[in-house]
Design a protein around this nucleic acid. Structure first.
Length: 578
RNA sequence: CGGGGCGUGGCGCAGCUUGGUAGCGCACCUGCUUUGGGAGCAGGGGGUCGUUGGUUCGAAUCCAAUCGCCCCGACCA
């Protein structure tokens, strides 16, 4: 492809609103244009990247027996009422919805469980038709609270979603395991470094779920991994062995101490330097919201640990959870924020305790009185120890649950999420089949999402340097950058043209920078910015039939015969395929 | 939702405090020279200063409203 015939522009400076490298580089190279917050035009170069990612996705889904379909972006409210998600998604504000001219409410699909379940339930009667495996590549719409990081969290984005429908929980688990392999092959083939982690299933619902994280410092998700044991989990879900509490002190009567203004653990540590953080228990007050009621929940947690709100909301089976505001804290604890405690807390307040408080005695806690804390509090003597459960956040350096490894906290970009949904949607939407015994059974579902546009951004986040992007060969917009330094020079014209022709004949994507009247420096800068993995430069050695060969990822460049450069490009692209 | 910031040629910014009709760099156009890491010289084009209203003889500048965009936070006691 001749660059001189393309719409191709680059910017010398980062756009002012780009916060992360992938966004800045994609925008500078003209791959991306922002139309509104979280809404982007995918330029021709980016479209090629997306097409390559999609091609890999299609191949891997096809070989796992998945059929592609295309579902509508516009969906009727009624369908979402059936699954019970309309209320939740509209109250969270994440759903783009509107009324049509007749006044019927419709939404732009943020996901397609309802539509696919409806499609399948109308066709499935018998166990003999199962399993069913479907997927699509579609634009999804989510009115995110805060779109950011360019393609990373947009309000409109491209997603591949797949669904499995099985006759039993075991068969569903098999479909799920197959898809796990599909995802590993997809991301490997895309040339990305990634980690599969256990995950919370969130709003989609369901049992087992795993996320695929592209390793990147700038990732929005924190994950806990253990290299020794292979354990990996999203921080929301991660579990660990909590370091043992310090020695129990002498038994002294519980007593009040004045602690003016000591609202945080840091303040208290300053006030009581001899008291270890592990013997301070914080009492965090939350406002929880269920479908039918609201309530305040207090969670007891060791001073050096933190409450994991996702574990808490799951345990409570609540719809929404937020830290109690000052007013609520005053009403429930009778004190300013920072002084709530488990002793003498209102009867109507549900008190839970994180496992970290287990075995802690003679501790400090809030006295439910402003500027006062209780010291030397003992479970069993001064209050009953509430039932403890894991409501905590794991920390760097914690041991794994079995104690045979150490957790490390890293970051990643979530590009894929697979779920075993079970019968949640099939039951609420009445998607049943008849089994061998004439019994009516709900379908066992799995759903498998993969962010296509986000994967492209993640690839840049993982592959770039100070000069620009560095695309992995399998998903690069073009494989080879052919730079002709002096278009119009006879020897260069004919050599570049023959290289271009031979590479295209070999089925290799080549972008020939034949733009006239451009200085060599500008050409090199643009090539570095765009980041095509293989580079062939046709320059001063053209009369001898020689060119410069180099890799965008680094290493020295070499002057070789044109035929040798072509052979190397062909070899590199073949290696990618295997 | 709360707080903060910003809207000035395609992009990045200055000008605003102290009102007098807009400027710089990049990009763009023309010509000549130049061609291995963002070339030089000369000439040139392009902006109702987000929008609306107000104050004023006069508003990019002051005031108000509104729209848009960005960041931070959403209280871990």
């Amino acid at each position: 492809m001749r660059l001189s015939c393309q719409l191709f522009t680059t910017l010398r400076e980062d756009p002012a609103d780009a916060e992360v490298r992938s966004h800045a580089l994609l925008a500078r190279a003209g791959f991306l244009h922002k139309l509104a917050a979280g809404i982007y035009v995918y330029g021709p170069m980016l479209k090629r990247v997306l097409a390559k990612i999609e091609a890999i996705i299609r191949e891997e889904h096809a070989s796992a027996g998945y059929q592609e379909l295309l579902m509508p972006a516009i969906q009727p409210r009624e369908l979402w009422e059936e699954s019970g998600r309309w209320e939740r998604y509209t109250s969270d504000g994440i759903l783009f919805h509107m009324a049509d001219r007749k006044g019927s409410e419709i939404c732009l699909g943020p996901t397609h469980e309802e539509v696919v379940t409806d499609f399948v339930r109308r066709r499935i009667q018998s166990h003999k038709q199962l399993p069913i495996h479907l997927f699509q590549v579609q634009t999804k719409f989510r009115d995110e609270i805060r779109p950011r990081f360019g393609l990373m969290r947009g309000r409109e984005f491209i997603m591949k979603d797949a669904y499995s429908f099985d006759a039993s929980s075991e068969a569903m688990a098999e479909s799920y395991a197959t898809m796990r392999g599909v995802y590993e092959r997809i991301f490997s083939r895309c040339g990305l470094r990634f980690t599969a982690v256990q995950a919370d299933s969130g709003a989609i619902g369901g049992a087992a779920s795993e996320e695929f994280m592209v390793d990147a410092e700038t990732g929005e998700d924190a994950i806990a991994v253990c290299h020794a044991t292979g354990y990996a989990a999203n921080l929301e879900r991660a579990v660990s062995r909590i370091p043992t509490p310090p020695e129990t002190p002498d038994k002294v009567d519980m007593h009040k101490e004045s602690t003016p203004g000591a609202k945080s653990c840091d303040d208290l540590v300053a006030l009581f330097p001899n008291l270890p953080l592990e013997r301070m228990l914080k009492t965090v007050l939350y406002k929880a919201q269920w479908a039918d009621k609201d309530g305040v929940v207090a969670v007891l947690c060791r001073g050096d640990r933190e409450v994991n709100e996702v574990k808490l909301i799951n345990h409570l089976d609540a719809l929404h959870l937020e830290l109690a505001d000052e007013k609520t804290v005053a009403e429930t604890s009778g004190a300013a924020p920072g002084f709530a405690g488990p002793v003498g807390l209102g009867e109507d307040i549900r008190l839970l305790a994180d496992a970290s408080v287990e075995g802690v005695h003679g501790f400090l806690c809030g006295a439910n009185e402003t500027d006062v804390h209780l010291l030397d509090v003992w479970f069993g003597r001064d209050l009953e120890q509430p039932e403890t459960l894991d409501l905590g956040m794991v920390q760097e350096g914690d041991s794994t649950l079995e104690g045979d490894g150490t957790l490390e906290i890293t970051r990643g970009i979530e590009v894929g999420h697979i779920f075993q949904l079970g019968t949640k949607y099939s039951e609420s939407m009445e998607a049943y089949f008849t089994d061998e015994n004439q019994a009516r059974q709900p379908l066992w579902m799995g759903c498998y999402g993969l962010g296509v546009s986000r994967t492209a951004a993640a690839a840049v986040e993982q592959g770039h340097d100070e000069n620009g992007m560095i695309w992995p060969l399998p998903i690069a917009p073009y494989s080879v950058a052919l730079l002709q330094l002096k278009p119009g020079d006879e020897a260069q014209d004919s050599l570049a043209e023959s290289i271009h022709e031979k590479l295209e004949a070999a089925g290799i994507d080549v972008l020939w920078d034949d733009r006239p009247k451009l200085s060599p420096g500008a050409r090199f800068k643009d090539a570095d910015l765009v980041g095509l993995p293989l580079r062939i430069v046709v320059g001063r050695d053209a009369p001898d039939g020689r060119v410069e060969w180099s890799l965008r990822s680094g290493g020295d460049s070499e002057v070789v015969d044109a035929e040798e450069a072509i052979a190397r490009a062909v070899a590199a692209c073949e290696e990618k395929e295997s």
